[in-house]
Structures are given as structure tokens and as C-alpha cells.
Design a binder for these strands. Sequence first.
DNA 1: GCTATCGGGACCTTTTCGGTCCAGATAGGC
DNA 2: GCCTATCTGGACCGAAAAGGTCCCGATAGC
Lengths: 154, 154
Amino acid sequence: MIRMTKLTDYGIVLLTHMAMEAPGSFHTAQDLATRSRIPVPTASKLLKALARAGLVISHRGRNGGYGLSRDADAISVAEIIAAIEGPIGLTECGTGTEGACDMESFCAARGRWAPINQAIERALQDVPLSAMRPAQPPPQERLVRLEAASGVAP
Amino acid sequence: MIRMTKLTDYGIVLLTHMAMEAPGSFHTAQDLATRSRIPVPTASKLLKALARAGLVISHRGRNGGYGLSRDADAISVAEIIAAIEGPIGLTECGTGTEGACDMESFCAARGRWAPINQAIERALQDVPLSAMRPAQPPPQERLVRLEAASGVAP
DNA sequence: GCTATCGGGACCTTTTCGGTCCAGATAGGC
DNA sequence: GCCTATCTGGACCGAAAAGGTCCCGATAGC
């Protein structure tokens, strides 16, 4: 199966929880971990990575914590994945990393991957963080609307 | 990075080599492995998986070997990946495997993945095996055409 | 100063990946 | 009818990566 690591999944869940709170509010790693049911050290590690990538802002010291750096609409799932896992792509080929594959000179599929990688990245860029959040105002079942709004469904 | 395993990559290279030969021709695992620069036992394992999935046909005994079960245009990259890695999807969520995630009951992103998974699968279904082969008649540069044909770009 | 919090590591354990090998079944050639 | 090349199915193993823990230093409210 083509997949993200579980860490990335957790990262998205963490950000989703932040997106459910008031914009501009801050929350400790402890708090976010508890609410997401993710072990605290793991959540902490993820939040560090997200802060390094500029997706969240961190405040140290007492009453410190993490908060989204932008509106949830302006953060794409592609960015989140890239922040935790690195460049998006199914293979090393075509992600810009040269010489990553020692079979490059005689690979039958050489150069064929880039368009596929780009198509997938584009699909993920079109999904904002706000589309992942359950959207409390209408209490349940926004599934259908999400599908229509995500821009990736036909 | 979102990724396939190297095994799957090898599988596609193997099939690409088959697609470069005359339709209906058969090749031993040994032969395909040598041409693809893949260790023979590994290639053999992959070909078994592809045969089980019905993408290639196997003949045992002397003068046996493997051949494509259909035209290269009728085999999608999505099928190849599914044959080697299982169902396509970024997460377990939304791939039909129920109960795979023990956080399901309180996951903030529950149910939000299915549309994304489907978008990616669709992108891969739109790329036929024939698009991966170097396409000897026009010697180089079909890249642009592939990009236009993938059908997932916004 | 005290203490709660983030920052950047090192570290360990488990799983999975990538790869090897072998005994058996099948089928063509002699 | 035997021999041999080939696929089939499985067990097996080492290495790498994922997943998770812990610690110490820096920072900033109180």
C-alpha cells in the first residue's frame, strides 16, 4: 500500500485538533497530546517538526504552547506531509534528488515518474487542513460536502 | 515522503521490460532479472505476486516463463501497485479495512481520508503501463504528453 | 530565582523491507 | 519414461526504518 507513516497521520490529527480551536489560540504539547490520544513525547516530537517547517508557532516558557501560524484554510495537507516526511513522491526518481538511484543509467522507467509524483502532490495541495476537521457547527455528516469541496473528486 | 516500497518499483520496472517486448512473448524470471539488474530471487518473488494478481501469465516447465496477460495499455500503474502492496491509500482509514485503527472512535480526522485516497488511486489508474516504457519509436520526450493525459491536474 | 514549557538531541525496541534459499510441482525434450 | 529447466509456495534472515522514550539545555512568565 502506498502510505504515509503513522507519525504523519498523527501530525495531521494534531493539527486538526488545533484547527478546531479558536484561531490564534495556543495549546501545550501536553494538552494536544491528551486530546488526540497520542503519547506526549511523540506529539512533542511532531510539534517540533511542524514548528521548524513554519506550520505552527511555538512560545516557550510558562504559558507557552503551540498555535497555527496561519488560517486552517491556508495550510494544505501536502505541506503537512512534506514537513514531517520530506518531499512528496512515490519514488526517489523525479523528486530532484540526483543520484539517489544507482540503476538510473539503465532504468526502463527512468523519467516516467515525475508526472505521476506531481499529480499526487497536486491532489494533496488541493486539500486544506480545514477540510479535515469535523466542522462542529453542523454536528455530523459533512462527508458529502467535503467530497464536493475538496476539488479532487471528479 | 509518501512512498512505495522499492519492491513495487522493481515490479514496475520488470513489467516495463516485458512491455517493451513483442506482445504475447514469454520470458524466464532469470532473463527479466538480468535485463532489469534486479537480483534473481527478488524478481522471481515479484513475478509470483504479479502472476497471482493476474497481471502476468506463467508457464511452468521447460521453455516456461512469464508474459503479460493483457496489452500494456490495459494495465494501470494502480493495478501493479495494488498487486504488490495491497490496497492503495495513504492511511488504513477509508480503505475498507474496518477496525484497523484503534483510535477510530475519537479520531478528529475520521472519515476525511477516503476522498483523498480515491483521488490518488484515480491518478494512478489513469497511467497505463505503456506510459512507463521508454517508447522506442519516438525516441525521447513523451513526458509532456503523459502529464496532459494523466487527467488529475486541476 | 523558580518552574513550566519548548528545542534538540541520543537512544532503544519493534516492525517491515529487501533479499535468500529450499523442497515440491509441472512440463518439455531426449 | 526419465531428465532437466522452470515456476510455486513457503520459511527464513539481516538490515534498515519506523515508532516511541528519555534527557539536558534554553526560555520566559510568575
